[in-house]
Nucleic acid binder design. Structure first.
Lengths: 132, 132
DNA sequence: ACACTTTTTTAGAATCATTATAAACTGGAA
DNA sequence: TTCCAGTTTATAATGATTCTAAAAAAGTGT
């Protein structure tokens, strides 16, 4: 299994649950944007034995901490995560409540001119809201 | 009272509670970023008679709908609002959990090259996360 | 001021995403 | 195999937000 190494290397035990979640999350061509509930559904379809909701939360947070996932800043009742952890941006379709990737090349270069004393810039994220 | 007109003009009855919340929100020099709980504290200090939490929620949502407030997209357990409804951006200090305004002039012009069929761009918001 | 309608406020209950708990289980080292 | 730290699990707890429905206040016409 290709994910066993990945998990071991980051100090996470390659448990059955984590490996199955890896498959759902990372065996894809395209970026995957999801909420915990959407992920749970995908896991249900993918796997015979169910994985506890608490484990899904634990795992997603563990993966986020290790840098395999990132949260997308957005105002929604549920938290959105992204399997694409590179620097990139998003459209958010307000009606459909769906996220769409914006490559860096789709957004002109962003140059933050202001700086705050003693603070480093960790990330720059652009959210483009769409309406009909 | 200067807010009576403002409320009437937007079809909101100028009640005692709304006027007091207006004072807390809008009688300031600078932009005010707040969560509902922070706002409740400010109201407590400003007013003798307490305003019900439900009313604070109702009022903030009514003001948002009328365009006097906007939500700031950010991953936090609480929703952040902003009295500055012009197009502008934010630093978010992850350690302090504080928002800092970024004027448009602090951020180079942002040009979204991609378009989605049948959708209009409603807003473009940049969130710059800060760490130590 | 009074009567009447509509909007607003309110306290408390309900909801829902997320986190905490603590007992059972598992992976991996010795 | 034995042991232990790390994981999983069901369930309870938490906390922000929304709902409810009754009381209060605002606006309107008389």
């Amino acid at each position: 299994m290709k994910y066993i190494e990945k998990l071991r290397n980051s100090g996470l035990r390659p448990t059955k649950q984590r490996l199955q979640i890896c498959e759902v999350l990372f065996d894809r061509e395209k970026t995957f944007h999801f909420t915990i509930n959407e992920l749970e559904q995908k896991i249900k379809n993918h796997t015979s034995r169910k994985i506890s909701l608490a484990t899904v939360y634990n795992t997603v947070h563990a993966f986020e901490k290790k840098g395999y996932l990132k949260q997308i800043p957005i105002n929604s009742s549920e938290t959105y995560f992204d399997t694409n952890v590179t620097d990139h941006h998003h459209f958010y379709d307000l009606k459909e409540e769906k996220l769409i990737d914006l490559e860096n090349s789709d957004v002109g270069p962003i140059n933050i001119l202001k700086r705050i004393n003693g603070k480093k810039i960790k990330s720059v994220e652009v959210l483009v809201k769409l309406e009909d």
